[in-house]
């Protein structure tokens, strides 16, 4: 056993039955502490199925083959209770649309302290202090005010910060971020990406970043796993995959991500 936080080996996922066509086939990768690993692909590539499998959130109809080890433990062998403990406690999750993950009728304070009170047997006041610190850590200017707010009173970028802060209060060792910036404006996206890098640098957490945006991957990932049609088509350090891609599909993805300068010359509509 190496020191990998998460070790995915020969993962296959079929929906509807063991004989159904594989949505994911033969996928293997590791996430090490302090490493940002990006799983990149277009719709239908299977990247979201892989992230759900890592979180054990696949529907019962999904048939899973291969193995997923988290800190050396086989997730398939974990009971529901144990898995619930790992999720949240050891694995923090950040999703695309924070509004659907935050409970609209509970204050931020309530949502951020609940896990601490339940999982860590903290007192309400200690949990509150920890939550305030977490909000400050993710760059929220007035943590007290945000604590007393409800989700709808916050902007999209602020909600995403709150969700990241909530994930961090339990000090997980792995963060899974599934399209964390896709619903955000570019300027806010830039802030959230900086924040993910900063958290990794500070905590040494591993980050599994699932995204369709090769531009985002190029800016933050240490290692890149490119998926297409349920398979890994290319996998390696970012310098290699982004700067010297070997597979035609990776080249096409990078090629389709036009820089603004390229777009200017490519357009040809504006002399």
């Amino acid at each position: 056993m190496t020191g990998a936080l998460i070790s995915v080996r020969d993962l296959s996922i079929r929906y509807g039955g063991p004989d159904a066509p594989a949505a994911v086939d033969g996928v293997s990768f590791d996430v090490n502490p302090g490493e940002i690993v990006a799983l990149v692909g277009e719709s239908g590539s299977g990247k979201s199925s892989v992230s759900l499998a890592v979180m054990s959130l696949l529907p019962d109809s999904a048939h899973v083959g291969g193995s997923i080890l988290f800190e050396g433990r086989d997730l398939a062998a974990c009971g529901r209770r144990e898995m619930e403990n790992i999720r949240g406690n050891r694995i923090g999750m950040i999703f695309q649309e924070p509004m659907t993950c935050l409970n609209p009728v509970l204050s931020i304070a309530r949502q951020m302290t609940e896990g601490l009170v339940r999982h860590r047997a903290m007192s309400r006041s200690a949990a509150r202090r920890r939550a305030l610190q977490a909000l400050a850590d993710v760059g929220i200017p007035e943590p007290e005010r945000v604590m007393n707010s409800f989700p709808h009173e916050l902007s999209g970028g602020m909600r995403q910060r709150v969700m990241i802060a909530a994930a961090l209060t339990l000090e997980p060792s792995l963060l899974i971020a599934d399209e964390p910036t896709t619903a955000l404006d570019v300027t806010v996206q830039a802030q959230v990406l900086d924040l993910l890098v900063e958290i990794r640098n500070r905590t040494g957490d591993g980050v599994l970043l699932i995204t369709h945006d090769i531009g985002v991957v190029a800016e933050v990932a240490d290692r890149v796993v490119v998926m297409q049609g349920g398979h890994v088509v290319e996998h390696g350090p970012w310098e290699q995959v982004i700067r010297a891609p070997r597979e035609a599909y990776t080249k096409a993805l990078i090629g389709a991500h036009m820089s603004l300068e390229e777009a200017l010359t490519d357009g040809g509509l504006h002399g």
Binding site: V186, A190, D213, G215, E219
Partner: peptide, 14 residues
């Protein structure tokens, strides 16, 4: 300027 600066680009690292 800030809007353009925030656009992700290949070849830049955060």
């Amino acid at each position: 300027q800030s809007l353009l600066e925030a656009v992700p680009r290949i070849g830049r690292r955060r």
